[in-house]
Simulated assay, not measured.
Amino acid sequence: MKRARWSQEDGTGIEHLVMNVSAKGIVIESAVVGESDAQTFGLVYRIECDARWQVTRLALKLAGGAALDLHRDEHNNTWRDAAGTPLDALSGCIDVDLTATPFTNTLPIRRLALARGERRVIRVAYVRVPELAVSAAEQAYTCIEPGRRYRYEGLDTGFTAEITVDADGLVLDYPGLFKRIV
């Protein structure tokens, strides 16, 4: 079991995460108290992955508010909501990206296992918090130093950042956004 804690760089939020890795897969549970665009929120989330770091489930709940439960069928790479309704807009997405946490960068970093200088474009299920609005987004990851530094690019937004990670792929520093404190 691995634990991590991050603070928002502006000091308005904190996250506590627990990650369990086994031969059967990976389960991540976390609690975030944060702020986005001057809107405060409390969020708990759970991400389940298969042993290859491919997301199979994402469940989120806002304190006193909305919830979201998404499932990905590993065989045909389709997403469904809790009611079983297909989410065609997320077709082709394997990873998820939650705006409230640096953790979701770990998913493609671990799954892709990039070599130095290698760049991969991916499509992710992008979740804006606290709105819990879901859409597909194009992103790219480039390995600068294997197991240590990666360049993230939001291809839809033009945002880029150089992310430093630990040996488990957990973010240590996401400049301007998050800093690992434990």
Rank of each mutant, 00 (worst) to 15 (best):
A4V: 08
Q8K: 15
H16P: 00
L17Y: 02
K24L: 14
V33E: 15
A38G: 04
A38Y: 06
T40H: 15
T40D: 13
F41W: 11
G42E: 06
L43C: 10
V44N: 13
E48V: 08
R52T: 06
Q54F: 11
L60R: 03
K61P: 00
A63H: 13
A66I: 03
H71Q: 12
H71L: 12
E74A: 15
W79H: 02
R80N: 14
G84D: 03
L87Q: 05
S91L: 10
G92V: 00
C93T: 03
V96E: 09
V96M: 11
V96F: 10
T104M: 03
P108N: 08
P108C: 08
R116S: 13
I122D: 11
Y126M: 10
Y126D: 06
V127S: 03
V129W: 13
P130Q: 01
P130G: 02
V134C: 07
A136S: 14
A137S: 14
E138P: 07
Q139K: 04
A140S: 15
C143N: 08
C143D: 10
C143P: 09
I144W: 02
E145N: 11
E153F: 07
G158W: 09
T160I: 13
T160C: 15
V165F: 14
G169F: 09
L170Q: 03
Y174L: 09
P175H: 07
K179P: 00
